[in-house]
């Protein structure tokens, strides 16, 4: 549904996006992860037609963003980091205005507006002036304008930025509701948000793609299975002692009901050897040991 191929964007001598390529399948939720200045917002703005690309191509629902710009923009809904809302309008008037801009036919507009307001839980606030709303409500209004025309692609730039915990929770619940119906590409610098909401994560650093995939495949890519987390029934200390005696094991640390093992390399034989030894202590499961935080930091370091 979203195809980005060798996308680049320069601002003078600064390369903000460098030969970026990725694909987001239909119905998928893709997270764009990266530190500040990684090029996430620039990439999203190019995808939505707000910014031009220096080179490369972007296709939204099969439409090239430069050759068939209008069709591409008709297929997407965009929520920038600062919601694009008119403070002097009422919530309903604004969403209706957005519906018109997005090309919703007159006869369908009332229904579309109601649906958008219902989805974003704004029905009771429809008559209120946007400028008087709290940040959380304004963010919802921003999401409503992105949804009102039922786009096949939704692009959200840091949708929970600046919200308090309860508002964050509401927003995430909303996004979860939408997955499956729409293809969603969201950017975030919160790792937990990426793991919670996204099917796949693409990590950017310095404008370049560093890694892309599911959480577990990312760990495989970047860590190569160097760390193993073994869940066991038996005594973790005894198990750790036994595993530490194995040649490929550099370190074995007992935890509560588990042992964290660091191998010297990620070969399958070494992993099989460790698993076999752990079986003697009631091995329940064996998976990569580091969290996404370590994956992310390692990826960033590698990019530097």
């Amino acid at each position: 549904m979203i195809e980005v191929d060798a996308l680049s964007r320069r601002f003078g001598n600064l390369v903000a996006v460098d030969e970026l390529s990725f694909v987001v399948e239909s119905g998928e939720v893709m997270g764009l992860l990266g530190p500040n200045g990684a090029g996430k917002t620039t990439t999203l703005r190019i995808l939505c037609g707000c910014l031009g690309a220096t080179s490369g191509t972007v296709r939204i629902a099969g439409h090239d963003i430069t050759q068939a710009s209008r069709a591409a923009r008709a297929a997407l809904g965009y929520l920038p980091e600062k919601p694009p809302i008119y403070d002097e309008m009422s919530v309903e008037d604004f969403v209706d205005h957005a519906a018109r801009l997005r090309g919703v036919a007159r006869r369908d507009r009332p229904t579309a507006v109601d649906r958008a307001l219902t989805l974003t839980d704004l029905s009771k606030a429809r008559g209120r002036i946007v400028g008087h709303l709290s940040k959380g409500y304004r963010q919802r209004v921003g999401l409503a304008q992105a949804l009102v025309h039922s786009p096949s692609v939704l692009v959200l730039d840091e949708p929970t930025s600046g919200l308090d915990p309860s508002q964050v929770s509401s927003m995430r619940a909303l996004i979860r509701e939408l997955r499956g119906e729409q293809t969603i590409l969201l950017s975030t610098h919160l790792l937990s948000e990426a793991t919670t909401l996204c099917d796949r994560v693409t990590i950017l650093a310095g404008g370049r793609l560093v890694a892309s995939g599911t959480e577990s495949s990312l760990r495989e890519q970047l860590l190569g299975g160097l760390a193993l987390r073994l869940e066991i029934i038996g005594d973790p200390s005894a198990c750790a002692e036994a595993l530490a005696a194995l040649a490929p094991v550099e370190q074995a640390t007992p935890g509560e009901g588990e042992v964290l093992v660091t191998l010297c390399d990620a070969s399958n034989e070494h992993r099989a050897l460790v698993n076999a030894e752990a079986t003697r202590f009631g091995l329940v499961s064996s998976r990569s040991g580091e969290g996404l935080e370590q994956v992310f930091l390692r990826a960033i370091e590698g990019a530097k």
Partner: peptide, 14 residues
Amino acid sequence: RSGTLPLLLSSPIA
């Protein structure tokens, strides 16, 4: 200033 430009630029209007 108000950040509504992306609404116009990302909408299917010339």
